[in-house]
Write a protein that binds this DNA or RNA. Structure first.
Lengths: 112, 112
DNA sequence: GATCATTACCTCGCTATACTAGGCATAATG
DNA sequence: CATTATGCCTAGTATAGCGAGGTAATGATC
């Protein structure tokens, strides 16, 4: 269902600061109010795609726990892409709203 | 970009009354404020899909102009599907809103 | 110290689906 | 009679999200 919106979602999750892949998943789950519980098979390829596109930059880091993580950070281009996506989303959501908003002339009434 | 939302869009276009394929396209274009200008190769298969799923019913009709048209009309199931989709959309849109809404703690400020 | 859950990364392949590019037919227009 | 607009259709392609699998280290349980 989120085909075409994933990149925007991932970028949005990283807008508040760098994070590693696993963390991005949790960030998205939290901020979406549990609506988006994205599997790794979705996130990791997306992160790679975004990095290749120049929207993200990554570097390896070691947590205090000793675990290796790849930490992603938005680039300037990424920020611009996000705000573009955000504008697109706005138009998209408005269009959908127009489609089943304040329309449906002879709708309710008979709610058998 | 509207992957996964097309069915909902088509159903929404037919919520205000029956229409034929070509008309659905124009209806969608209008109501979306020109945001969605969907090609026939998108709409016709979608209509067939929706009819096969039992969300739409169609019958051939002849306009005054003499042209044959296939007119689609929502079924009871279609109406239910639409309202379900609508609810899903609501949650989806809210989730997106949560992702780049009232967040981004250290964002703007420096807008060099 | 063996077993298990959690964290953390990765990739291959499936599948669903929107769209491109074609084709067909009729009515109106010049 | 050629062109444009209306009106329908389908085959094939490309994309992308996701399931299923694999690897490895840490911490806890027994």
């Amino acid at each position: 269902m989120l085909k075409g919106h994933l990149d925007m979602i991932v970028l949005a999750a990283l807008a508040s600061g760098p994070a590693h892949g696993y963390g991005v998943i949790q960030e998205i789950r939290q901020r979406s109010g549990n609506a988006f519980d994205l599997p790794e098979g979705t996130i990791y390829p997306a992160l790679h795609r975004l990095e290749k596109a120049g929207y993200l930059a990554s570097h390896w880091s070691t947590a205090e726990s000793g675990r290796k993580r790849r930490v992603y950070k938005m680039t300037r281009r990424g920020e611009r892409a996000l705000s573009d996506h955000r504008a697109l989303w706005q138009r998209f959501a408005d269009a959908i709203g127009g489609l089943f908003g304040e329309k449906a002339r002879a709708p309710a009434r008979s709610h058998r």
